[in-house]
Amino acid sequence: MSSTTAMIFGLNKYALEIEANVKSKYDTVNIYALEGQDVSGKTIVTERFDLSDDWLDIAQSVDIENSIAFCVLENSAENIFLTISLRAHFKDLIIIAIASNNESANKLKMAGANKVIPIVETTADIIANVLERPISNRVLHSILYEESDLKIEQVKVLNAEYFKDQMIADIDWSRYKGIIILSVMHEDMSHEFIYASKLNSHIIHEGDILVVVGFEKDIDEFKKRIGSV
């Protein structure tokens, strides 16, 4: 039986925030402190790692295919080295890394991180949105991060017959009361805006993933119709 593990490399304020936010989604959350780091006074249980590790312990104890790694070391060079080291040993591991700036973000991507969160740029983005678009910021924040009735979901189409081979551009989406279709996802996780010209002649088929916004009950209703439930 597969077990999911979140591995957080680095013991700092980011690690604790991530641990608090992902612990409900994974069977196990392990925090690894860098060898030599002083962990006295920390209430959280941590394991140790070294940048020159060959990761044998992890390879034996963790179901890599169903796990995720967060690289949150505050030293950019060490964080990049850690990322490249993990990628070298675990080809299929999902690695999310934090970067202090864009330069580090690019290097982390080159080192094999699946997703990089550039802290400075993300924070600046949020502040700019708070100042310039307070309403959209409030609504999107509520949709993404807060416990509100309004949700954003990715819904896989399993019953394409429902759309009767219609092209996306021809579908009257207003028929689906309560929800708004924003995008169609591709297999590589890239997506196209629903009104993109590339999608004009796209016929919805089984396996397509639609990104929808709506109230929970309306999304559930929609899922039933397209066979996603």
Partner: peptide
């Protein structure tokens, strides 16, 4: 900023596609 990182990772692991869109 730390809280933002926490919230973003939560969305990233829960609904990566939706997060990317927004």
């Amino acid at each position: 900023p730390q809280e933002l990182v926490g919230l973003i990772t939560k969305e990233l692991v829960g609904k990566p596609a939706a997060f990317e869109v927004i």
